[in-house]
Amino acid sequence: MRQWWKWSIYAGSIAAFIGSASFTIYCAWKVYAYHQPGKEAAEEAENNAYHFVLVPEELDNDYWRLVEQGAKAAAKETRVSLEYVGPRQANMDEHIRILEKAAASKVDGIMTQGLTEKEFTPVINHIVEKNIPVVTIDTDAPTSKRTAYIGTDNYYAGFIAGRALAEDMRGKANVAIITGSLTASHQQLRVQGFKDAVKKEKGIRIVAIEESHITRVQAAEKAYSILKKHPEVNAFYGTSALDAIGIAKVIEQFHREKETYIIGFDTLPETIHYLRKGTIHATVVQEPYEMGYRAVKMMVDILNGKNVPSVTNTETKVIRKQDLPLRPARNYEVEHD
């Protein structure tokens, strides 16, 4: 009887051990299975051939979010890792620091704006000398060692804005220009293109040019001061995405919607709102999604040893209220998380 009892205890111990071992194996398997998505993500990261950084002028600007969306779509297709990092608000010094940090981390490619020749050309050249290709987007640095530029022909964009104003105002207007920056090359080109487009119009006079620093508030402040100093102004041209919005707020404040013409840039939701109301009469549209998408594809080609064009201009056109809604929406409507 005692031997049977000992045997029972022994058998029970064995069964308990087997059960415990089985449970341990089962738990281990569940843990392994649970972590499979992480493993797949890790494997996908390992399979990503390249690591790119996209540095915008302003991180939370809706225009640059469209560029980001296009870049991310191309990154997913080409299986590359993409970081989107930049200043919260336009800040040249911070922008340059981020570029230098990206280069120091030895990424495979950098995409950014050229902004100003003086400040950005040396930075871009330094990056390229580290064997990191640079593709400029939206704003070129043509004298730098960048490999390629993709984006708007900013002189042409300013020119068609000038022609649109001249046509809509029938060749007679006292114009004030509010530009995002007096030093940024793309803004300068938009101003110069506009000037050249209207210079033969005897009835068009450019009364003032002011700087908004790419903010709604300063665009509104400058529009207000211009109207106080030059009440004869009956047309405004805003060269950055936020300028026409600030101008429109002031025009409505002065109740001058019917007597003041506004042409701006881009298709931020507020711009479309004022366009539908008739406060803004026209805006120059670009293809930011296409810029980001094609820049990533171009960078992959560069790293794979393929030849790419030095300059690729995306489509630019002037639209008015009757042209809404715009398609394809990916170039004009930001997808918010």
Rank of each mutant, 00 (worst) to 15 (best):
142 P>D: 04
161 A>M: 08
204 I>A: 05
129 E>P: 00
215 T>L: 10
171 G>I: 03
40 E>W: 14
201 E>H: 09
254 F>H: 10
100 E>Y: 04
17 F>S: 12
194 F>M: 08
45 A>E: 13
264 G>D: 09
307 N>C: 01
110 I>M: 08
138 D>S: 09
124 I>V: 14
28 A>N: 15
195 K>R: 13
16 A>R: 02
178 I>E: 11
59 L>C: 05
334 V>W: 03
169 M>K: 15
266 D>R: 03
219 A>D: 06
216 R>Q: 13
204 I>Q: 05
36 Q>M: 14
285 V>D: 00
23 F>E: 01
308 V>R: 13
36 Q>K: 14
272 I>W: 00
336 H>D: 00
162 G>P: 07
51 H>P: 02
194 F>Y: 10
137 I>A: 02
4 W>Y: 09
184 A>D: 13
289 Y>L: 04
50 Y>N: 10
248 A>N: 10
239 T>E: 11
189 L>T: 01
115 L>A: 05
129 E>Y: 07
10 Y>Q: 06
25 I>R: 03
159 F>S: 03
166 A>F: 01
24 T>H: 07
176 A>G: 13
190 R>I: 09
182 L>Y: 13
258 K>Y: 01
306 K>D: 04
50 Y>D: 04
154 N>V: 08
148 A>I: 01
231 P>W: 06
42 A>M: 13
295 A>H: 11
153 D>A: 08
206 I>H: 00
164 A>Y: 06
249 K>T: 11
17 F>Q: 04
220 A>C: 08
223 A>W: 12
1 M>I: 10
116 T>Y: 14
312 T>K: 10
49 A>M: 11
298 M>Y: 02
